[in-house]
Structures are given as C-alpha cells and as structure tokens.
Design a protein around this nucleic acid. Sequence first.
DNA 1: GCGCCATTCCAAAGCGCTTTGACATGAGAG
DNA 2: CTCTCATGTCAAAGCGCTTTGGAATGGCGC
Lengths: 346, 346
Amino acid sequence: MNLKELSHLLGISQTTVSRALNGYPEVSEATRARVIAAAQAHNYSPNTRAQGLATGHSRCIGHVISVNDSGEMVNPIFGDFMAGAGETYAAHGYDMMMTRVGAQDESDTYRNLQARGAVDGLVVHAPRNSDARLPLLTEIGLPFVVHGRSTGTDLDYSWLDVNNRRAFQDAARYLVSLGHSRIGLINGQETLDFAIRRREGYVSALAEAGLSVDPTLMVSGEMTEKYGFASASAMLDLPNPPSAFLVSSIICAVGVRRALDARDLKQGSDVSIVTFDDCLSYFANGSETPVFTAMQSSVRAAGAALAQMLIDRINTPDAPHTQTLWEADFVIGPSTGPYKSPHTKD
Amino acid sequence: MNLKELSHLLGISQTTVSRALNGYPEVSEATRARVIAAAQAHNYSPNTRAQGLATGHSRCIGHVISVNDSGEMVNPIFGDFMAGAGETYAAHGYDMMMTRVGAQDESDTYRNLQARGAVDGLVVHAPRNSDARLPLLTEIGLPFVVHGRSTGTDLDYSWLDVNNRRAFQDAARYLVSLGHSRIGLINGQETLDFAIRRREGYVSALAEAGLSVDPTLMVSGEMTEKYGFASASAMLDLPNPPSAFLVSSIICAVGVRRALDARDLKQGSDVSIVTFDDCLSYFANGSETPVFTAMQSSVRAAGAALAQMLIDRINTPDAPHTQTLWEADFVIGPSTGPYKSPHTKD
DNA sequence: GCGCCATTCCAAAGCGCTTTGACATGAGAG
DNA sequence: CTCTCATGTCAAAGCGCTTTGGAATGGCGC
C-alpha cells in the first residue's frame, strides 16, 4: 500500500492524505479521522526512503563502532548504551543505525555516511585525546554529540561525560583513608580520554596523601575479564604487592577477584577492590547489596540522555552546544576494608 | 555533491556517470576511470535514499531487539553478535539497523518495518516456542533468518543454531561421569527455545544415568550475574544441595562462583561448574587456560554466518531454506572435578 | 444576488537516483 | 560508397513522498 493507492481508495488527493497524516492544520478533522482510520486498516506507513528523499532528512541516527586495534574486542557497555538511546530515538520517530569500522578507514566511514545522507546525526563513542573525528564532523557539517570528552581540542561541541577524574580521585582517597598505601590502578586503554582522566584522579589523590606513584602499579589496556585477571595477578606477585585495586570496569573487577581467589586472598579483608560500574543490566552491582565497592553511573541513562541531546541538536542546529557532567555515585560494598598487613594472621 | 553536479562537472550525462559507477558494461573503460576518479576526488557517494527509492531496495538489515518483560535486561551477547554480523554486512554494502521494542507492540514493529520499506530483511533474535514472528514475517513477505530455532511450527524457514540439547546432555553426562548425582540447572528463560532444549538435554542425561530429576534443582530466568548468584545460593542452602551446576551463560557462572565464594566452597573441588560460553570478547574463557569447564560456541561467528545467510536469502528468495546446526566445543577447565562428599575433609 | 474570506482540497513540481528506449558515431561488410 | 552493427552516450520516465501555489466550495455580510 502506498500513498497513491490509499488516496484513490479514499477518493481524496495524495496531498490531503499526506497532510492529514502529518498533522497539518489545513485538513478538516473529519477527513483526518477518515484518513487515519484507513491508513491503519491497510497498514499504511509512508515509505521511509521516499519520505526521506522529499524532506531531505533520513530520520536516522548513526553509531559508528570502532573495533579496536587487535580487531577483537567489543565494548560490553555497548548493548546497554544502545538500549537507552533506542528508547529515546523510538519516542521521536528516529531509526538507529550501526556501522562497524576498523581503525584505518575511520574518517572515510564518517565522510561516506555524510555523503550518502545516511544519517541525520551521530554519536561519537570512545573519544580519544585530540580526537580527529570532532574536527572532521564539524567540517563536513554532520551534527554529533560525544559520549565522553576529548581534551586537546579548542572546538566547541556537545558532550555528556561522567566526572571520571573526580570519581577515581574520591575512590583513591577512600582507599587511602582505609590505610592503603599501595593501590593498583587497572585502567582502560589510555589512548581513550576517560582513562587518562581516571589516571589523573588516581595520581592526584596519591599525591595529596603524600604517597609515591609506582609505575608498576599502573596498567592500561582493554577492559576484559582476562586483562583484569592478568594485571592483578602480576601485581600481586610483585615483591611489594598492592593491598588495594582501583579498577576501570566491573568486567575487569571480576578478573581481579579471580586473581585473588587463585591466591586464596579474601577480597575486602586481604585485598580491597573498588571498581567503576556502568550499571550494566546483566551485571547489576545492586544498590541494595552491592557486590563491589563502586563508582557507578548508568551507561544506559547516558545513552538516553545523549540521544536526546543529539535530537535537540538536529532540530535546532544553531542552539549553543551543551555540556553535561555527571557525578558517579560512590557505593560501599564488601569488596573494601581497612588495610591489613600481609603478615597479620586472622 | 550529487549526481547531477558530478555529471555537469564531467560534461557527461547522469546516465553514463551512474552506469560507470555501478559497473555496467555499456560504458568505456576510459570514461569509467575518469568518472571514478572524479567521484573520489569530490567525495561523491550516491544518496542512499534516492538510490533506494529508485531500486526499491534499502540495502539495510534490521535487528529488532525485544526488551524483556520487566523492560530492563539487555542481552550481553548482543554486542558480539552485531560485531560479527556487521562485518558481513559491511562487506556486502549493507547497513545495519536496530529497533528496540517492548513485548506488547512487537508485531506492529515488524509490520511497520515492512510497510515503510525500511529494511530488506531481518534477523529474528531469541526465538520462542511457536514464535508468532515467523508466520508473521512469512505472511508479510519480509525475508528473515532466525538465530536459534522455534519448535512448534511447521513453517519452513532458515536458521542457524547451536546444538543446545546435545551440549547440555554431554555436559551433564560429563558431570555424572565425575560422580555427581545432584546437579543444579541454572537455565535461561524457558519461554525461549534454546533454554527448553538445554533443559531437555539435561533431563535426558540424568534419565539415562538413572538419576531422578529434582525440580528444586532446576531454575529458569534472565541470565544475569545476580540471577546466577541467587539461584546457586538458594540451591546450596538446600538440605541436600547439589555438588555441581550446569549454567547457561558465563555471566551467570560468575554469579555462581560468587555464591561458592560466599560459602567458602572451592569450585572444582567442592562444587563443579560447567557453563555455556558464547565466547564474548570481553569475557574470553580462553582455550589455552580455560576459566570454566564450558560448552563454547562463538556468538560472533554466528552473527557473521547469519548475516551471510540473510543476504543470500535476499538475493535469491526462491532458493531453498538453509538450516545450520553447530556443535558446541566442550573444553575442560578447573571448574570441574570428581564428586566429593560434603563430609569429606581435605 | 454579489463579492469576499475561510476553509478544504488538489495538481504538479521536485527530492536524487536508476533504467528504459532511443540516438549518434565510427568501423567493417558488401 | 552505402548499409549494417556494435559501441558509447543521452533524455526522460519513474520510484513514493512532501510541499508550493492555486482553485474550488460554502458561509457570511452587504
């Protein structure tokens, strides 16, 4: 069923049918009701492509997912982010498109998306330091919002970020206040902006406590369970191991916990763990009874909020850019406890 | 830059430019080379919507993601599936679209996708028993492939599934061979087809070993970490607790492990765990040194394979349907061991 | 009865592309 | 030297929609 058929069927012109469906005032309510009923009865929906051609908009939002250098890792927060964003898109009649891209042809992909008119705007994921995507998108005039921030650019752009620096500073302070002086940092990839900020927060908390920063207690990498396990294992096997860990994701933290288990170390008493928690739906840390002491911020909520920001930008491109900084919630769970000398027996 | 501008620029008609770019033989190679060079130089790509209108195809594949009844859970395998599928789509010039939908308006969503011509085909995720989507899609003539299967329909359709029944049967047999007679099943939601098959495999292995099936040792639910923890905890606190667990996902298995930890039970010696493992990139069980004894099958590979199946279906709709059954790999890790009476001391 | 607005509707153009059918051009056959 | 026949190119129609500019219709005041 298309517009022409439907209008013939109703004995009305295509114009009127179109206007009736799109809520224009020039059509009587009686006609509008009749049209809507008929459209529903015949399961008519305007052809997306034709509508897009005519209006010049695609009513579609792009998400470019870069696979990492090794080409393997998929960000575990992705699903929850999309679930949050999808809700907002659906409410505004937008479709949601994904493009997977390798690191090498990244800018081509963005350019192509623009040239083809495939999307009305897009979300930039996992921004890096001085991320080249921001000037590129600005130049080609594709509206975008950033999940996170990119230091090292003087461009004005819209973003929503968690205060990663503050979160890790507070968490490190908390561990210091419990008496820990050797704290391992199991960070995300420090090519990514958020990881850099997290390290800054960690370093500054140590500095203000007069503690030295030991490079052997700081690692950076893709946040997998295995990485958490391997990093924690290596640090625990040092001659002077850490008594606490600051971990960048709950997935990693599971790996850290495994490393403790393997050494018969009790988390919370022997070794403390604080982790960042994106509130993944399948790995709820739970506010009632947390599994880990954590800095939490819902990536799903971030998805929903960023989607709204982007739609607003698309609708009013000349409005000033918006910057939103969320504070993570700090919840105390059983994975942290006061410092205990390794020589102390229970 | 659009076709008209590009053709003016070259002093050639739109027809010729279009043909040159689309590889038609009626254009001389000299002209073709000139056209391609110019297109590249001016970053020209045909407008997706216009191309779609003209050809009648969207070159876009849909993925409808149903949020669960409670509206909260996002399937953790989703990201890896899409990464696999995305690779295939990109190689064939297809875009990938996602639609998030609540359970109530599910069929409307599919109908709408078809009516709008938004997608050329789609992947059906998480099929249920006698899934209503299969007859619906068949009726409205939207090509599809199913990730999994749906028992209880006599429809002919294309699918790719893991032999879940066999995997769970083999795993249960293995536990039985280790001397376990009380084996807890922590299954996925048994509204879903794969979970039903998994239970069947479990039940049949117990039956052939002459073991009784204890309903208190079988649970079904959304595969979150918390669910794994809560289910295992409840079973372990029974008067006659299980000595082994069969778990439906690695995320759940982490929760089960936590339940053991909380009771100071050592996995592999006190209690055994076998889990299904989708080979999630951020939670590699690793073939070199597995974390869990597991039945593994890569959901990413499944995504890639299903995408190819779907594209084939779209290209040759009259070809016979294809059904593919993958066997899971059984890997033995440290999470399983011989049965040990709870009264035995180390 | 006439003119004048609102109101309601319509025909046609245009969005950027593909594709049909036709048309020049030059080479080879007669 | 003309007649075909590939070869390479083009103008125009059409995909299904929105939207502009215009045209009927009917109610009202004069």
